[in-house]
Design a protein around this nucleic acid. Structure first.
Length: 281
DNA sequence: TAAATCCTGTCA
DNA sequence: TGACAGGATTTA
């Protein structure tokens, strides 16, 4: 499921290849995936791509933006000239496009195309004035972002202020943004903290260890180009590799890398939660 | 704070 | 064939 490292990988790809392209036309195959007036973006040129938490903002030359949240299975795939390197995108990696789950097709100049695919249709694409991006519900209430503006002091304050379980808390985008199920599970494993621990029961030292663990797993995710356990691919349709180094996520019934205890799976906040019952207390 | 909602591919 | 997964929002 795309979290900060996955969405950042998409952002980098779009920033590299999409910027400078002009949108000539848009094919809307599933109207419910798109909101806003599509005529506002025709003939406008992409000037930059920003990311806030797990949200993306494609900025256009006419002061409009395309805000995107890919949720579980959304994909933004660019095909066309790779401007920086001057080579073509490999057809093998991208696969045949459009496909069944392709809901929006942005036709660009120079025979380039941006596809929005979404198997489960949980994501959204919104056309909005650039200055009103932060009035959108998701962006409006976004908490400080992990790896960027989330300081340890703020992190400690967030944890101290509630007795709710630490793992679901890490995933609350209004408290802190960018962390989802995969990296929350792995960070708690690195920090040797049980996912059900009340957040305010952590000692200052444990909070520090967890803060550093979060940074560590997110950076590893970024270095691996994200994880492709589900539908995630980057802006060129390529998979990441972090799923190959999952520590506990999806590893139930396999031995703990540290102590060989069998990894357990429980449901916490209606999310799959994986941990080592020996290491994490 | 917990449960329902959206949706479809996957798996038992 | 039915249960299940799951981010964020909505409802109870």
């Amino acid at each position: 499921m795309p979290e900060l490292p996955e969405v950042e990988s998409i952002r980098i790809g779009l920033q590299t290849y999409l910027v400078g392209h002009t949108i000539q036309n848009v094919t809307v195959r599933m109207p419910k995936m798109l909101s806003g007036d599509v005529t506002h973006i025709i003939e406008s040129t992409v000037t930059g791509v920003r990311r806030f938490g797990k949200g993306l903002v494609i900025d256009l030359s006419n002061n409009f933006s395309i805000a995107v949240h890919v949720k579980m299975t959304g994909q933004l795939i660019y095909t066309g000239p790779k401007v920086p390197r001057g080579t073509q995108v490999s057809k093998e990696k991208v696969g045949k496009l459009p496909k069944k789950a392709t809901h929006l097709i942005f036709h660009l100049d120079h025979d380039a195309v941006l596809y929005y695919n979404d198997q489960r249709q949980f994501g959204w694409v919104k056309i909005v004035e650039t200055e009103k991006v932060f009035e959108l519900p998701f962006f409006k209430d976004l908490g400080p972002e992990a790896l960027k503006d989330l300081t340890f002091e703020t992190f400690a304050k967030i944890l101290s202020s509630t007795k709710s379980a630490i793992k679901p808390l890490l995933m609350e985008q209004k408290k802190m943004s960018g962390v989802g199920n995969i990296y929350a599970n792995d960070a708690l494993y690195v920090a040797k903290i049980h996912p059900k621990r009340p957040a305010n029961s952590l000692t200052k030292e444990e909070m520090r260890v967890l803060f550093d663990a979060l940074e560590e797993v997110l950076k590893k995710g970024l270095a691996a180009g994200g994880s492709s356990e589900w539908a995630y691919v980057n802006a060129l349709g390529e998979e990441g590799s972090y799923q190959k180094i999952f520590l506990v996520y999806g590893k139930d019934n396999t031995p703990c890398p540290r102590c060989n205890t069998v990894i357990e799976r429980i449901t916490l906040g209606s999310r799959g939660t994986f941990f080592c019952p020996t290491c994490q207390s």
